[in-house]
Amino acid sequence: MTLHNNHSATIPEHTRPIKLPSDMPQSASVTSDPTSNPSNAPQLADETCIEIANFNAWYGSFQAIDDLTLKIPRNQVTAFIGPSGCGKSTLLRWINRMNDIVPTAHSKGTLRIHDLDVLSPSTDVVHLRRQVGMVFQKPNPFPKSIYENVAFGPRLHLKLRRGELDELVEWSLRKAAVWDEVKDRLHAPALGLSGGQQQRLCIARAIAVGPEILLMDEPCSALDPASTLAIEDLLYELREQYTIVMVTHNMQQASRCSNRTAFFFEGRLVESGPTDDVFTKPQQKRTDDYVRGRFG
């Protein structure tokens, strides 16, 4: 799977939702989606999706990330854990160049998604962000209707007919497991939804443009336990089609729903590996202290 650095309206085959609804059974749930192929996931497990090497990032003169090297595998949920200010959100925001809008932010090093050099000035960020969706800490739906929220992204990139757009919106909402709750009020304001529903709407909005990678910056920190559980279940489903990178402060959450965990401390990567290993037999003392809740 390669990312093409051009403006063409291609969506990766495996996440192309547009053709989908016609051959999708009406009762289809997210898991029985014909294009997702769960048996594929294990084979691809070791394929590197995001490669970060000798990466440094600054805000002004403050160095937020110091010489970090990490490989993020495809179709897995990778959790970034660590105390506040350790650079995990910064790294996340560099993967889709969200830090471009911070005037003082700059970086050095290698950050590649497949063979695309993310940090290169010639990289088309519009195209990059289409491939790398982002979900934020606080649910941030636009003050528009539920339908318009999901249709926002596709409208930016694709010329779809009314019917196609309707299908894409439904597909995205189903995928984000919020369709049943909103199908009767698609044109009601999105801000009228509960926090958890809003966050799932934001996930639907992100996947509607057909990304390959989903970045989640503490997606559950503003939600109640029931909504958190719903999102965690959703993450588990979604990783069959998407490479998910999430930042979390919640260690239980990291252990519950991630395959791999990376522990950050003061801008450095302390340890990374399969989640079970990091939590049960950490190699570093600091990791051990942190996952046991001794600090942070």
């Binding site: 889709n96 809008i101 962000r129 969706g133 934020f136 930016l156």
Partner: peptide, 10 residues
């Protein structure tokens, strides 16, 4: 956050 959401969608 609204601007970020929009930028995030490309």
């Amino acid at each position: 956050s609204l601007r970020e959401a929009s930028y995030g969608l490309g």
